[in-house]
Design a protein around this nucleic acid. Structure first.
Length: 857
RNA sequence: GCCGGGUUGGCGGAAUCGGCAGACGCGAUGGUCUCAAACACCAUUGUCCGAAAGGAUGUGUGGGUUCGAGUCCCACACCCGGCACCA
């Protein structure tokens, strides 16, 4: 992979592949068709743009500001097809904003901490920084060549001490606010990467990074209190509706997993070590209305509660069972149709609605970390409970009698009875929602429980036992406990470790660097040890958008005023793979910093586009499938513009692209056709276009009008199609036999419009055209053309005549024809008459000037 | 199971105010150029009937509303994605 990327990188420097381009250029047929050398053009303009530096954010208040952000890149080798797609799509918007005259912040940076660098360093016996910064240089060079309209002065790398100093600052702020805390719990552990993982990084029981089966470990780890914000994370999505993809919002809602129901208290007698203690255990249920059907009670076997409740006589059985449970992997546990297991704990709980004694079990189908880790089991209603009841021969109530003490009072007096008419264990005569309300009211009145909301979302576990990340800025002192490193001692810089020293061994490689680990306690000055874990790299990316307005500020993480001027981000563009990870974390951090008074907004990204995936022959590209398409090779063969155009023209931005279905060669052909226009124009720059051919001018201005709307609604592929139509129309106009000829000012106007339109997608070709049209660079700042309303008015339109809803004729009419005129014209048409034949006309519907429909009797 | 998105020619996709379905492009076919091939350019291209004029048919399926439905309503099928022993 590395080898191939390097080769591509060299190719993109444009010195070796001239032969390929020349073959194409020199073999121009006898048609005298001029072409341009795509790659030579790139070299030429790159130098010019370097000097012009046209995409710097001004921040001088002279223009309205816009902030466009592409999700920054992880530097694993050179850019790939996916980068090509995001950058191409995001750049259409950025360049459009530049053309519209906005002050645009379009920054660039690298998410450069992370595991792959560390693994590469172990393999190559070097420092992760070497691999990382080498790849960043390669990618930066490719980004330049890809001609994305970024402000290079914003460039940041999250692995620079100048950056991660402020990641550590963020940690300290969260710590001070009580939002960063250590807790001991069963955490996700990846045995391959030898580190803990956040819930979000476990996908289907496997490590998101390496695919290894995740196990559980009891460890004390740092968490960020995302759950404090859970309801706000849900509610604030209302403001994103319509500007974020529906699927991302759905995925976040899913992940947050809000469910409404009740906490119900069950008294348990004779529980615990010495047997004879009474306890009240609360369960969460989304169906309190099924309470009468609860015939047993289950606690999560691996929750401390199980041991606490267990009768001493049953302790041995529980231990044995627990041993089995711990051996079961997450993957096995999740297997569908797996037989239920569990053990009786020797105690009974009291159903608060019926007063019945029901047995208490421990089982692994109940999760320790969801709800309260205990459930009321309703086998008449719930498949899982039914499975368990069947296995353990427990009673299943399918119809129930009205319980004692539950009369009509909960429901205004007309007596919700228990449904005995069907198999549903619920309250009769009420739908589920009403039944739930009635039971909750009853529970609250009798003290048996309360209405409750439960969430699936867990806190964000941020400790990682790996090297290449920002050290957690905390010192552990035997006397003072955990002591945050004072701000003025930041950054806590990583020690210098290389190669085998980075080998994962179950604890952070940092712990081996004793010079680094052993420090004086910042509080008491006594001997203490640094926290040896580093932060999840998602912490780095949870705030980078705040750094971009002032990327080199050595005095603060971000400038509150600058952020106020630029943010929230107007448009964010990136892959859907971050739908819950990065986006959820960034939303959390924004809310936390808002509450601390640093930010005046609560959502970081006003609008989001998820570009589709680039695939090949129906499959995602991967090394194992061997079907990868190399971006560098594509650029070498077709040039930057043609590849970018292909990405943009392929379809809606959010749709996947199958590269096998695409034709970069066709894109190149179109660019050559467009470019040729610029050489055909014979009128001078600045010629009075008002005297030009009106028909072509109408096409041009209609295109401007449409293209503007199409870009604003992100239908870039259609915008390109409109430009193609304009090129076709201009081509025809240049032909003096069929049109006004190359000297007509309208031809110049059209060609210049094509150049500006293309500047959003194909910057090199557009710049080349602009020069040939007699202008100086850069076309990127030429200014977006305005459609002349007078030229948008049609002097004739097509009126469709239908008979019984079927099209029988098309009339060319004046746009302000009256209904009666159109009716008369339609009925006079020979084709219409033939379709009517001898039948009677019952009515004629006219929608002037577009349609006439003749309805027969 | 729950949630979200989708289904239009050989292919990618247009048509989001209910008013010409298939814009634009790819591919294919025929032609011009060429010794030839490639490139380029021109023409045709939903399907069926027809020499043509023209006609029939056509946007996953079945119903409905309407003068008129790819578009609105109801039901269903299938595909893609997410979540899931989550109580």
């Amino acid at each position: 992979m590395q080898q191939r990327c390097k080769k591509a990188g060299r190719g993109m420097r444009g010195d070796e592949h001239m032969s390929a381009q020349q073959a194409e250029t020199s073999s121009v047929g006898s048609g005298e068709q001029a072409r341009y050398d795509v790659v030579a053009t790139q070299e030429k303009w790159l130098r010019v743009w370097q000097d012009l530096d046209p995409f710097k954010a001004l921040d001088d208040g002279s223009r309205e500001r816009r902030y466009l952000l592409d999700m920054f890149s992880y530097p694993s080798g050179d850019l790939h097809m996916g980068h090509g797609e995001v950058f191409a799509l995001a750049d259409v918007i950025a360049r459009y904003w530049f053309q519209q005259g906005y002050d645009v912040l379009h920054p660039i940076g690298w998410d450069s901490f992370g595991l792959p660098a560390e693994n590469a360093a172990i393999k190559r016996d070097e420092h992760p920084a070497e691999w990382t910064y080498r790849n960043i240089e390669t990618q930066a060079e490719s980004c330049r060549r890809y001609a994305i309209s970024v402000d290079w002065s914003t460039r940041l790398h999250t692995s620079d001490p100048e950056y991660y100093k402020w990641t550590q600052w963020l940690f300290l702020k969260l710590y001070a606010a009580g939002l960063a805390y250590r807790k001991a719990s069963a955490v996700n552990w990846c045995p391959h990467d030898q580190t803990v993982l956040a819930n979000e990084q476990v996908v289907g029981g496997r490590c998101e990074r390496c695919g290894f089966e995740v196990t559980k470990r009891n460890l004390t780890q740092w968490d960020f209190k995302v759950t404090d914000f859970v309801q706000r994370l849900l509610d604030d999505m209302d403001a994103l509706q319509g500007n974020w993809p529906e699927r991302v919002l759905a995925m976040q809602r899913n992940w947050i997993g809000r469910s409404e129901g009740a906490h119900v208290d069950f008294a348990i007698e004779g529980a615990g070590e010495s047997a004879g203690q009474d306890r009240v255990v609360t369960v969460f249920t989304t169906r309190p209305d099924t309470l009468f059907g609860a015939t047993f009670f289950v606690v999560a076997a691996d929750a401390p509660l199980a041991a606490e409740l267990c009768h001493p006589d049953f302790r041995a059985a529980l231990e044995t069972y627990l041993h089995d449970v711990r051996r079961t992997t997450e993957i096995e546990r999740l297997t569908e149709g797996r037989e239920k297991t569990g053990v009786f704990l020797g105690v009974h709980a009291t159903n608060p609605a019926t007063g019945q004694q029901i047995p208490v079990y421990a089982a692994d189908y109940v999760l320790a970390d969801y709800g309260t880790g205990a459930i009321m089991a309703v086998p008449g209603q719930d498949q899982r409970d039914w499975d368990f009841a069947t296995k353990f021969d427990l009673p299943i109530i399918r119809t129930v009698q009205p319980p004692d003490g539950f009369d009509g009072e909960a429901h205004g007096g007309d007596g919700p009875a228990v449904n005995s008419a069907n198999d549903e264990v619920s309250l009769d005569g009420l739908d589920v929602a009403d039944a739930k309300r009635a039971i909750i009211a009853y529970l609250e009145r009798t003290g048996g429980g309360t209405g409750a909301v439960n969430y699936r979302l867990r806190d964000w576990l941020v400790s990682r036992q790996r090297f290449w990340g920002a050290p957690i800025p905390v010192v552990h002192c035997p006397g003072c406990g955990e002591v945050p490193v004072p701000e003025d001692q930041l950054p806590v810089v990583l020690p210098h470790l290389t190669g085998a020293e980075l080998q994962p061994k179950g604890e952070s490689p940092l712990s081996a660097a004793s010079d680094w680990v052993n420090v004086d306690c910042p509080a008491c000055g006594g001997p203490a040890r640094r926290d040896t874990d580093t932060m999840d790299t998602f912490v780095d990316s949870s705030w980078y958008y705040l750094r971009y307005p002032t990327p080199n500020d050595a005095t603060q993480a971000f400038d509150v005023e600058a952020v106020r001027r630029w943010e929230p981000v107007d448009q964010y563009v990136g892959g859907v793979e971050h739908a819950i990870l990065h986006l959820l974390y960034a939303r959390f951090v924004t809310k936390a910093l808002h509450d601390m008074g640093y930010l005046d907004f609560v959502e970081p990204f006003t609008a989001l586009i998820n570009q589709g995936e680039v695939r090949n022959q129906g499959k995602g590209m991967s090394k194992s499938l061997g079907n990868g398409v190399d971006l560098g090779e594509q650029l070498e063969t077709y040039g930057v513009d043609a590849v970018r155009l292909t990405m943009v023209f392929a379809g809606p931005p959010e749709d996947d692209i199958d590269w096998a279905d695409m034709s970069p060669a066709g894109s190149l052909k179109f660019l050559q056709r467009a470019w040729r226009l610029s050489g055909d124009v014979t009128s001078p720059p600045g010629v009075d276009v008002a005297t030009g051919d009106v028909a072509l001018r109408r096409v041009t201005h209609r295109t401007i009008q449409d293209a503007t709307q199409l870009i604003e609604s992100h239908r870039f592929n259609v915008m390109v199609a409109r430009l193609m139509e304009l090129v076709n129309a201009t081509r025809k106009a240049i032909d003096a036999d069929a049109g006004p000829g190359p000297g007509d000012p309208a031809v110049r106007e059209a060609a210049e419009t094509v150049a500006i339109g293309l500047s959003l997608v194909a910057p090199y070709t557009a710049e080349e055209m602009w020069e040939r049209l007699g202008h100086s660079p850069t076309v990127a700042k030429a200014g977006w053309p305005r459609a002349d309303p007078a030229l948008l008015v049609q002097d004739s339109v097509t009126c469709v005549v239908q008979v019984q809803g079927k099209v029988r004729a098309k009339l060319t009419v004046s746009p302000d024809s009256t209904e009666s005129e159109l009716e008369a014209l339609a009925l006079a048409d020979a084709n219409v008459q033939r379709a009517i034949a001898d039948r009677a006309v019952r009515s004629v519907i006219v929608k002037a000037p577009r349609v006439v429909n003749v309805v027969l009797g």
